[in-house]
């Protein structure tokens, strides 16, 4: 009877493992990674999944085997004949005669086993720890973020001000004219000053939108994150970006998309839709990328969801920005 318990354990654990094997094929898995961060994050994820998966199977298998093999045939509470000096007996019995030399020595000495299973995981864990420092630094350290046209940076990052409030994202873009100036007049100290003032000072010609974050492909975007009321968390799962916004602070976040999902609906119109998959050249539900709040921010937390639009090129982005600006303008005589 007792042996059935090991089978129950084994079957349950196999079912758990199978769930992890099957779910990627059902679509329950990491959303597609579409930024330069996603490669390093995903690699580390799969690497840790491999190591933990290995140790999971190893330990659970051992446990089930032991539970099966060493099940008492007697009822609880009764004593069973058991030879004294069992350590010697145990390990002599278990060690197959084929294993000799140093391995057998280790297996026969509990202290050495203890050392082995301390040092081995320690080495693996330390390696995991240090292997990821760089990926973390690239994503989060402010010193590693793209900046305005510094010596070793060839680009001007797109700057966007994201202000969270209960329960929506208020997003502020520079006007298209101002943005073109940033891009074209690099090195001009006046422009640098203007660039740096963007996040701190709101201007009348800024373009303000709600819940819609627009960037363009293959170009770093720096988002200046702040909040008006409570803590929110800026979460772009497809970009592998997550950052809490803190009241009273402005925190920069950056990412570079490597895939676009937004196209112009018709050649000359100014309607832009997301959900476009450039690989299949078709609309695709999985290409709708959400921008959600990940930190509990009150009763509307769940519905604090916006969208990320990645345009194909800078020109597309500017066209879109101009079309939004045009809608903001007062009616003028033609």
């Amino acid at each position: 009877m007792g042996k059935w318990w090991s089978i129950l354990f084994g079957v349950t654990m196999i079912a758990c493992t199978l769930l992890f094997v099957v779910s990627p094929f059902v679509g329950w898995w990491l959303p597609e990674g579409v930024s330069t961060h996603s490669w390093s994050v995903d690699l580390l994820f799969y690497f840790i999944l491999g190591i933990t998966g290995f140790f999971f199977i190893l330990t659970e298998a051992l446990m089930c085997i032991f539970m099966y093999r060493y099940c008492s045939s007697e009822k609880a509470g009764r004593t069973v004949a058991h030879a004294p000096g069992f350590f010697v007996r145990t390990y002599n019995k278990w060690t197959p005669p084929a294993i000799k030399g140093s391995i057998a020595k280790v297996l026969n000495d509990p202290h050495k086993i203890e050392m082995a299973w301390t040092v081995l995981p320690a080495v693996i864990l330390l390696w995991i720890a240090f292997a990821q420092v760089d990926a973390w630094a690239v994503i989060k350290y402010q010193s590693r973020m793209p900046r305005y046209a510094e010596k070793n940076q060839e680009f001007t990052p797109l700057q966007i001000d994201v202000t969270a409030r209960q329960w929506e994202w208020r997003i502020r873009y520079p006007s298209s004219e101002r943005f073109v100036e940033w891009m074209t007049r690099k090195g001009d100290p006046e422009i640098l000053k203007d660039f740096q003032s963007f996040a701190k000072i709101e201007q009348k010609d800024d373009v303000k939108l709600v819940n819609e974050l627009h960037v363009w492909n293959h170009h770093p975007a720096v988002l200046q994150l702040s909040t008006r009321d409570v803590i929110h968390s800026f979460n772009l799962p497809h970009m592998r970006v997550k950052q809490d916004s803190l009241p009273g602070k402005q925190i920069p976040v950056w990412f570079t998309p490597i895939k676009h999902n937004t196209i112009r609906l018709s050649a000359d119109g100014d309607v832009w839709i997301d959900g476009y998959n450039p690989d299949t050249k078709a609309q695709d539900r999985n290409q709708i990328w959400d921008l959600s709040c990940a930190e509990l921010c009150g009763w509307g937390h769940y519905r604090m969801v916006g969208r990320l639009y990645v345009h194909e090129s800078q020109q597309d982005f500017l066209d879109w920005l101009k079309s939004v600006e045009a809608k903001m303008l007062p009616p003028r005589a033609k």
Partner: peptide
């Protein structure tokens, strides 16, 4: 290691 070679009572 404890249940290894034990006489497990369930």
């Amino acid at each position: 290691g404890t249940i290894f070679h034990g006489n497990i009572q369930y």
